[in-house]
Design a protein around this nucleic acid. Structure first.
Lengths: 341, 341
DNA sequence: AATGAAATTGCAATCGTTTGCAGAACATAG
DNA sequence: CTATGTTCTGCAAACGATTGCAATTTCATT
């Protein structure tokens, strides 16, 4: 029986028990050929017996590497973001990295707090998707100043000279609205999320482009912006729109907004897609489960995560790596809400 | 202009620039009254100028505290778990703790991997919810041996002598099925998730109890277990059940299973709730958005997270704290799928 | 048995921070 | 000008691990 340690077993404990130095133990565990086979065996046996696990903190301090990457993301209860996270994790794990996820809950203050927490040398790199409320990017710039690489994904910023991985929101929206036009709709409204985000500006631009290209006009009150992108907003923000009875098509920048809108329309006795055809965005599971099933734009979330972490880890391993900007394409999925019967 | 450091600014850099020792700098930053006000001011000014941030790793090593708690959770794309995480985060942040979330993706292997990664002194405590596949708990027991406290939540285990925070699944299921009986249903089926999980055993037991108490009988093939708890499983697993045309009520242990089942029933021309009344579990947003809206059991996820992290942090601060077992109550929400018209 | 080379091992510094203790600088009183 | 106290600062060890360099042991060879 040996002495029971309260905390974890360290290299020093093993060294003491075998009457050798910590250096030798360290080398033995690293399979260094300098160590005599017999010593090596003894060390390894004891390490196994005591479930020795190198102290992560000590290792990090010595090597100045944490083998951890940080993720700052606005929400995690979000099918798209969750997919991104999964992609990030899968690649990161395969490269021996761990992951710290911080959810900013769409709050600028929380995002700054999270950034500060990650700045103190806890992570070797950062993957960030800015919150709805974020305008000032100073907290991210500090990372660059300390030589901690950042890759932005999905929601990026014009200012930052960093690598980014984005969705081609402009084209995705363009295709979605073009599809509505192709099935004969002429008065198409837009319901979108926060104007603050580039992705929404791009989606709106794609919408406008499709209309103008087809020689169609929109009206000022056919374009609605909601801060929250939830079901309730979709419902409330479309009430006026529906009352006027002017539109025959709707492009929503989020599936949840689409569901809210459709529910509202159905309540007013409108038929979907006969009276109004609807296309959403993101391909959340509800879009296929809802009745009618909702046409939408599928975003490659998993690929986005994979790509973002791949670029980040490349930056970590090679500080001189030049910035890279990736734009991923989407796929329009046509379902009942925009199919003529 | 001062020398530009590649990495972060350390206490040593400040000391050098002011020609004082690191001890004094450290004390000045800690507002130690021993330090002369003038020195203190100079140090603080420089620290601010250089955005000095204490090195997290060094701090951890010195204090043997990481101020971080680990979470091992089966899924994050899950409205209930996401709520739990939010509760954990909110309390942890308020106490100055950070959080590392590891998602096991319902895989035992991944869970073990995550546990090993967290074991090496990265976290001061662990919150865990076991995966569907987990039977062996050795990887958790090691935490106890090293004096790292664990609190299990939601899905707990009989074996472990640890603190736990659970839902009263037995009673929740009992109330749900009793409700179906109260509205006159006599032939009630059960569709549930993995039999491996205690929560599902409890839900099944609650179901059985409600039936037997009312003098009702079930049949062997009225009880269906699915490994996956998704929409597809709900659809497939109920096909035989519906064909036989024997049941007039269904209790599903998950809303997604309920949605799948209802969709299947509707496809067979059955009316909900007239022909079959349905109650789900978890109060996912789809249960209120679906048509018909689905009766379900609301689980206090946020409170669970709050409570679990509160207990954990208490354990961290006081290793002699005795184990605590909390059982949270649920609320039955009655919607269209079980309302007589 | 002495010599030299080869095979092992240990010392000590390092990563960034804190802190007990000793000592320096300064001020006040006698 | 000494004695005594007060205020302030620095040295060095510690946290757990790695690693260049030096020291020791081992062994073969003459």
């Amino acid at each position: 029986m040996s002495i029971i340690k309260k905390g974890s077993v360290t290299i020093k404990d093993i060294a003491q028990e075998l009457n050798i130095s910590t250096s030798t133990v360290s080398r033995a565990l690293a399979d260094n050929p300098l160590v005599k086979p017999a010593t090596k065996a003894a060390v390894k046996e004891l390490a196994k017996k005591y479930h020795y696990q190198p102290n992560f903190t000590a290792l990090s301090l010595r090597s100045n590497k944490t083998n951890t990457i940080g993720i700052i993301i606005p929400q995690i209860v979000h099918e798209f973001f969750a997919l991104v996270i999964r992609g990030i994790e899968d690649y990161a794990y395969s490269q021996g990295y761990n992951v710290i996820i911080c959810s900013s809950h769409e709050s600028y203050e929380r995002e700054v707090l999270d950034a500060k927490a990650l700045l103190s040398g806890r992570v070797d790199g950062l993957l960030a998707c800015i919150s709805r409320d974020t305008n000032d990017l100073a907290h991210f710039i500090e990372f660059k100043e300390r030589g901690i690489p950042i890759v932005f994904f999905d929601r990026t910023s014009d200012i930052s000279e960093t690598s980014k991985v984005e969705i081609d929101d402009y084209n995705a929206a363009y295709q979605a609205v073009k599809h509505l036009i192709d099935i004969g709709r002429k008065s198409i409204a837009y319901v979108g999320g926060s104007k603050n985000l580039n992705i929404n500006k791009d989606r709106l631009a794609g919408y406008s482009k499709a209309l103008s290209e087809a020689g169609l006009k929109t009206q000022k009150d056919w374009i609605v912006h909601c801060e929250a992108e939830d079901f309730e907003s979709g419902k409330e923000s479309t009430t006026d729109l529906i009352k006027k009875n002017e539109i025959d098509g709707l492009f929503a920048s989020t599936d949840m907004l689409a569901v809210g809108a459709i529910k509202n329309m159905k309540a007013q006795g409108l038929q979907i897609p006969k009276d109004i055809a609807v296309v959403g965005f993101s391909n959340w599971s509800i879009s296929s489960l809802y009745e009618p099933s909702i046409s939408t734009v599928d975003q490659p979330g998993y690929e986005m995560g994979l790509k973002a972490s791949e670029i980040l880890i490349r930056h970590i391993n090679n500080p001189d790596e030049k910035n890279e900007s990736v734009i991923l394409q989407t796929e329009l999925i046509i379902r009942e809400s925009s199919t003529l019967v």
